[in-house]
Protein backbone atom coordinates (compact mmCIF):
# COMPACT_ATOMS: atom_id res chain seq x y z
CA UNK A 1 0.00 0.00 0.00
CA UNK A 2 1.54 3.28 -1.13
CA UNK A 3 0.30 5.28 1.80
CA UNK A 4 2.09 2.89 4.19
CA UNK A 5 5.46 3.35 2.50
CA UNK A 6 8.14 3.36 5.15
CA UNK A 7 5.79 2.73 8.06
CA UNK A 8 6.86 -0.87 8.58
CA UNK A 9 10.53 0.14 8.49
CA UNK A 10 9.85 2.94 10.94
CA UNK A 11 8.13 0.59 13.38
CA UNK A 12 10.86 -2.01 13.02
CA UNK A 13 13.57 0.56 13.64
CA UNK A 14 11.98 2.42 16.55
CA UNK A 15 9.94 -0.29 18.32
CA UNK A 16 12.51 -0.91 21.01
CA UNK A 17 12.77 2.73 22.06
CA UNK A 18 9.03 3.26 21.81
CA UNK A 19 8.35 0.11 23.85
CA UNK A 20 10.56 1.44 26.63
CA UNK A 21 8.61 4.69 26.65
CA UNK A 22 5.32 2.82 26.73
CA UNK A 23 6.47 0.73 29.65
CA UNK A 24 7.72 3.68 31.64
CA UNK A 25 4.44 5.48 31.10
CA UNK A 26 2.16 2.61 31.97
CA UNK A 27 4.23 0.48 34.28
CA UNK A 28 2.62 -2.62 32.88
CA UNK A 29 3.65 -4.68 29.88
CA UNK A 30 0.11 -5.37 28.72
CA UNK A 31 -0.93 -1.77 29.06
CA UNK A 32 2.33 -0.68 27.48
CA UNK A 33 1.69 -2.93 24.52
CA UNK A 34 -1.84 -1.58 24.15
CA UNK A 35 -0.63 1.98 24.43
CA UNK A 36 2.04 1.53 21.77
CA UNK A 37 -0.39 -0.29 19.51
CA UNK A 38 -2.93 2.49 19.82
CA UNK A 39 -0.36 5.22 19.21
CA UNK A 40 1.04 3.42 16.18
CA UNK A 41 -2.46 2.91 14.78
CA UNK A 42 -3.06 6.63 15.11
CA UNK A 43 0.27 7.36 13.48
CA UNK A 44 -0.49 5.02 10.61
CA UNK A 45 -3.77 6.81 9.91
CA UNK A 46 -1.84 10.07 9.56
CA UNK A 47 1.32 8.56 8.14
CA UNK A 48 1.34 10.56 4.91
CA UNK A 49 1.28 13.76 6.92
CA UNK A 50 3.81 12.83 9.62
CA UNK A 51 6.33 10.64 7.78
CA UNK A 52 8.28 13.59 6.42
CA UNK A 53 8.49 15.44 9.73
CA UNK A 54 9.28 13.59 12.95
CA UNK A 55 7.17 10.43 13.19
CA UNK A 56 8.76 9.26 16.43
CA UNK A 57 7.87 12.51 18.16
CA UNK A 58 4.33 12.06 16.86
CA UNK A 59 4.13 8.53 18.30
CA UNK A 60 5.48 9.67 21.66
CA UNK A 61 3.08 12.58 21.78
CA UNK A 62 0.25 10.21 20.91
CA UNK A 63 1.34 7.88 23.72
CA UNK A 64 1.46 10.65 26.32
CA UNK A 65 -1.93 12.00 25.38
CA UNK A 66 -3.47 8.59 25.04
CA UNK A 67 -2.13 7.52 28.40
CA UNK A 68 -3.58 10.56 30.19
CA UNK A 69 -6.83 10.04 28.32
CA UNK A 70 -7.04 6.37 29.37
CA UNK A 71 -6.29 7.26 32.93
CA UNK A 72 -9.12 9.81 32.90
CA UNK A 73 -11.55 7.41 31.28
CA UNK A 74 -10.73 4.14 32.93
CA UNK A 75 -8.61 5.00 35.95
CA UNK A 76 -6.55 1.93 35.20
CA UNK A 77 -4.72 0.53 38.18
CA UNK A 78 -1.17 1.73 37.76
CA UNK A 79 1.53 -0.50 39.02
CA UNK A 80 5.03 -0.83 37.80
CA UNK A 81 5.16 -4.35 39.12
CA UNK A 82 3.61 -6.17 36.16
CA UNK A 83 5.06 -9.53 35.31
CA UNK A 84 8.20 -9.02 33.29
CA UNK A 85 8.34 -11.31 30.33
CA UNK A 86 11.94 -10.50 29.71
CA UNK A 87 13.80 -10.02 32.90
CA UNK A 88 17.02 -8.12 32.62
CA UNK A 89 19.92 -10.48 32.63
CA UNK A 90 22.64 -10.56 35.26
CA UNK A 91 21.35 -7.70 37.32
CA UNK A 92 22.84 -7.49 40.75
CA UNK A 93 20.35 -8.36 43.48
CA UNK A 94 20.52 -4.93 45.06
CA UNK A 95 19.85 -3.27 41.71
CA UNK A 96 16.71 -5.40 41.23
CA UNK A 97 15.46 -4.45 44.66
CA UNK A 98 16.21 -0.82 43.91
CA UNK A 99 14.34 -0.99 40.59
CA UNK A 100 11.23 -2.40 42.24
CA UNK A 101 11.34 0.42 44.74
CA UNK A 102 11.71 2.90 41.92
CA UNK A 103 8.82 1.29 40.05
CA UNK A 104 6.57 1.46 43.07
CA UNK A 105 7.47 5.07 43.60
CA UNK A 106 6.70 5.98 40.01
CA UNK A 107 3.33 4.26 40.29
CA UNK A 108 2.37 6.80 42.97
CA UNK A 109 2.66 9.67 40.51
CA UNK A 110 -0.15 10.98 38.37
CA UNK A 111 0.09 10.24 34.61
CA UNK A 112 1.04 13.84 33.89
CA UNK A 113 3.71 13.87 36.58
CA UNK A 114 5.04 10.59 35.27
CA UNK A 115 5.04 11.89 31.72
CA UNK A 116 7.03 14.94 32.78
CA UNK A 117 9.48 12.79 34.75
CA UNK A 118 10.02 10.52 31.72
CA UNK A 119 10.40 13.42 29.33
CA UNK A 120 12.73 15.43 31.54
CA UNK A 121 14.88 12.72 33.10
CA UNK A 122 14.67 9.82 30.65
CA UNK A 123 14.47 11.67 27.35
CA UNK A 124 16.55 14.55 28.68
CA UNK A 125 14.27 17.11 27.13
CA UNK A 126 14.31 20.70 28.29
CA UNK A 127 11.25 22.08 29.99
CA UNK A 128 10.35 23.97 26.84
CA UNK A 129 10.69 20.85 24.67
CA UNK A 130 8.60 18.82 27.11
CA UNK A 131 5.94 21.53 27.16
CA UNK A 132 5.83 21.60 23.39
CA UNK A 133 5.50 17.82 23.18
CA UNK A 134 2.78 17.69 25.81
CA UNK A 135 0.97 20.67 24.34
CA UNK A 136 1.05 22.65 27.58
CA UNK A 137 2.83 25.68 29.02
CA UNK A 138 6.37 25.58 30.40
CA UNK A 139 5.02 26.60 33.78
CA UNK A 140 2.80 23.51 33.80
CA UNK A 141 5.81 21.27 33.12
CA UNK A 142 7.73 23.00 35.91
CA UNK A 143 4.88 22.53 38.31
CA UNK A 144 4.42 18.84 37.47
CA UNK A 145 8.19 18.24 37.69
CA UNK A 146 8.40 20.01 41.03
CA UNK A 147 5.42 18.13 42.43
CA UNK A 148 6.69 14.80 41.11
CA UNK A 149 10.16 15.22 42.58
CA UNK A 150 8.75 16.32 45.92
CA UNK A 151 6.45 13.32 45.94
CA UNK A 152 9.28 10.97 45.08
CA UNK A 153 11.32 12.50 47.87
CA UNK A 154 8.44 11.98 50.27
CA UNK A 155 7.51 8.44 49.37
CA UNK A 156 10.91 7.02 48.55
CA UNK A 157 13.66 8.92 50.37
CA UNK A 158 15.76 5.77 50.53
CA UNK A 159 15.48 5.45 46.76
CA UNK A 160 16.78 8.95 46.26
CA UNK A 161 19.39 8.37 48.85
CA UNK A 162 20.50 5.16 47.12
CA UNK A 163 20.54 6.76 43.73
CA UNK A 164 22.44 9.74 45.00
CA UNK A 165 24.98 7.47 46.69
CA UNK A 166 25.27 5.27 43.65
CA UNK A 167 25.97 8.21 41.40
CA UNK A 168 28.68 9.73 43.51
Amino acid sequence: MAEADGFREFVRGRSAALSRHAYLLTGDHHLGEDLLQSALASTYRHWRRVRDSDPEAYVRRAMYHQHVSWWRRRRVPEQLTGGHREVAQADPADATALRLTMAQALSRLSPKQRAVIVLRFYDDLTEAQAAQLLGCRVGTVKRHAHDALRRLRDIAPELLHETERSTR
Binding site: V87, A88, R99, E162
Partner: peptide, 14 residues
Protein backbone atom coordinates in the same frame (compact mmCIF):
# COMPACT_ATOMS: atom_id res chain seq x y z
CA UNK B 1 20.35 8.98 39.98
CA UNK B 2 16.78 9.25 38.83
CA UNK B 3 17.92 9.29 35.22
CA UNK B 4 19.99 6.15 35.70
CA UNK B 5 17.22 4.35 37.45
CA UNK B 6 14.69 5.26 34.78
CA UNK B 7 17.00 3.90 32.11
CA UNK B 8 17.52 0.69 34.02
CA UNK B 9 13.77 0.28 34.43
CA UNK B 10 13.13 1.06 30.78
CA UNK B 11 15.78 -1.38 29.64
CA UNK B 12 13.86 -4.21 31.23
CA UNK B 13 11.01 -3.67 28.74
CA UNK B 14 10.88 -6.05 25.80
Amino acid sequence: GLRQELRRTADSAP
